[in-house]
Write a protein that binds this DNA or RNA. Structure first.
Lengths: 138, 138
DNA sequence: CTCTACTTTAGAATCATTATAAATTACACA
DNA sequence: TGTGTAATTTATAATGATTCTAAAGTAGAG
């Protein structure tokens, strides 16, 4: 229950009213040590498991979209099949394990510095992200 | 009309029967000098413009999926809004212009070598791709 | 406490994509 | 050059993810 205040502040700072539903979503998303990768479906399942309160599908979508827009979540596109979100909102790299469909964060130190050699007149770089696809040596 | 034979061979080599519809799709996709990035919608529009023959939506999807499966096209996921395909099937990097929603291929020489420092026991690297998001300095 | 704007909700609507099943076509082989 | 069969195309239906709608409920300023 202690963390609730943190979540309430997080929501408030993003201009979102702290409702029971949104706080429950925050609990599932942010009450963990490692960063969390999820799909909407995965999140819906976890919410059902971990929470007494019912929560409608529309609210899950609305809240995740709001959190993403406000910068508390990051959207990650690996392929067209699944749309992932990430609680690590910094610009960072990923491993995607094609065998297990697992997505893993990489530290910047795991990949040497990347330098873009091409000149970009009139353009600003917003992010540079590397996706390393791996498969198990079955 | 000359190129049709090339397309027929391309389709045959992928185990696909060369039908009028598939040849028309090949014309739109491959009869160009630069690599081509497109969404299914974009392709459907171009097919309507450039071709007399009607082609059903299902055939467009079936053919693009078949060509992708056979390795003549590459799927590229930038965000959940649009699913892109690329006629450049090599492992390569991209610029995505968030202002114009344009996707541009990068040469390997445009980006310094990327070395993965993290050990990957029991895993094989399938691809390493960089996505550089840029925006116009309005 | 009360009012109003924001939020939630169930269900409908939409959009992209895939499945279905009947009509058509490619092409191997006679 | 026909013919039969399996592949292909097609219109349409089905599916799945996401968004919209409008009514009921709630947060929080005053």
């Amino acid at each position: 229950m202690n963390n609730n205040n943190i979540f309430i502040e997080k929501l408030r700072s993003a201009g979102l009213r702290p409702t029971i539903q949104r706080i429950n979503i925050c609990k599932v998303l942010f009450d963990r040590k490692k960063t969390f990768h999820f799909t909407i479906n995965h999140l819906k399942t976890l919410l059902q498991e971990k929470t007494d309160q019912k929560i409608s599908q529309a609210t899950v979508y609305n809240t995740i979209n709001a959190l993403t827009k406000k910068g508390h979540l990051k959207e990650i596109s690996i392929n067209s099949e699944k749309n992932y979100f990430d609680t690590n909102i910094t610009s960072h790299h990923h491993f995607y394990n094609e065998s297990t469909k697992e997505l893993i964060d990489l530290q910047d130190s795991d990949i040497g510095k990347i330098n873009i050699k091409k000149p970009l007149p009139g353009k600003k770089i917003k992010s540079i992200e590397v996706l390393v696809k791996v498969a198990n040596n079955n």
